Amino acid sequence: MNRRRSPRPVSADDLLATLGRLTAQARVGAEFQRARVELAEALQREMLPASLPDVPGLRTAACYSPARGGLEVGGDWYDGFRLGDGSLAFSIGDVQGHDVEAAAFMGQIRIALRAVAAAASDPGDVLARANDLLLSVGRDLFATCSFLRFDPRTWRLEGARAGHIPAVWATVDGAYGIAEDEGGLPLGVLAGGDYPVTARSLGRAGAYVLLTDGVVEGPSFPIATGLGQVARVVRDGAAADPEELAAEVLRVADSTGHADDAAVLVLRHDAPPGR
């Protein structure tokens, strides 16, 4: 007859040894994850522009807030640069994922947009070319994006969207709204994508504001609600300094409960010269 051996009683020393081993493993894992987060944050800081372009009558400002929950890092970005014909280009976007790979992909997209913008005919062409270029890299990531081009000679603003949330606009005389322009698929999803272009003549002084969904969306806070709140902020601050307006828009994120990162890009424009 076989007898089962009684298990050896677990002593306090055994429990302490096990606890110490698990604690050491958790510490190593946490330190590794923290190192990845610090690397991603450093990549983001270095890849965001140190300054934004402007011209007489058009002032720009941007705000960025990193992810506020846990150890995640987002891939939001904004950018602005001059084109060879004298116009100004602006972009904002959000990369899928929250890690070093997302931050690195964000840098690739910024470079791709700058590279193709010099030869593209309009913002829709910029997004189409950048989309195909990113697909050729073979990364399993995608990104939403809005791309604008401002012509200081005509005071005309052209824009296209790749799956990104709409911009918000307002004029100093109290008009305001959400720019629900037609858009295309996010970048990196499907080759040969089409990105319709919407053109606006900035006939009255005001503000045009681009943002990422981290500003306006939360677990129980629909995007439509957040966009409405931002629209009211932009209406009230259409004549304000662009840095102040960008900061006020970013504060909307505090009410959404969203832990994602967030970015805001403000174009504060006067009426066309001579008007």
Rank of each mutant, 00 (worst) to 15 (best):
C63V: 14
A61F: 01
L141F: 11
E101P: 09
H98M: 05
G93E: 05
P123S: 09
R36H: 15
V37E: 15
R59N: 00
V37D: 13
F142V: 08
D99T: 04
L127F: 13
L83R: 13
T60A: 08
T60Q: 06
A102C: 07
L141T: 14
L48T: 09
L58W: 09
A40F: 07
F32H: 15
D54P: 01
L43P: 07
S136R: 15
V137F: 13
L133Y: 07
H98D: 06
A62K: 03
H98V: 04
M47G: 14
G138Q: 02
G93F: 08
R139S: 07
L43K: 06
L88S: 00
N131G: 15
G93M: 09
Q33W: 05
D79M: 07
C145L: 12
R36K: 13
L127K: 12
G75Q: 04
A120L: 00
G75P: 00
P49Y: 01
L88E: 00
Q33L: 15
V100C: 02
G75D: 02
F81W: 06
A61Q: 00
V55S: 13
F147Q: 14
T144V: 10
R68K: 09
D99R: 06
L127Q: 13
A130R: 02
A103N: 10
S136D: 15
M47N: 14
R139D: 02
L88C: 00
G75K: 01
V116M: 08
C145K: 00
A50Q: 13
D76P: 09
I92D: 11
V100T: 03
L52K: 10
A89R: 00
A119V: 14
L134Y: 03
R114L: 03
S136T: 10
T144R: 12
A40I: 01
V55N: 13
V116P: 04
A128L: 03
L83P: 06
P123R: 07
D125M: 04
A130I: 05
L141W: 07
L39Y: 04
A89S: 05
F90E: 04
D54Q: 14
G84Y: 00
C63P: 06
A103V: 04
R82H: 11
V116H: 08
A42S: 14
L135V: 06
E46L: 11
F81A: 02
A115E: 07
D94E: 06
A50S: 15
A61P: 00
S65H: 07
E46Y: 02
A67M: 10
A42V: 04
L58Y: 08
D140M: 11
A42L: 05
D132Q: 12
P49W: 02
A117W: 10
G74F: 00
R110E: 11
L71K: 02
S121L: 14
G138H: 01
E46W: 01
D79E: 10
W77L: 14
D85I: 07
A103H: 03
L71H: 10
Q44C: 07
F147D: 01
S146R: 12
S121T: 14
S87T: 15
A50P: 03
R36V: 02
R139Y: 06
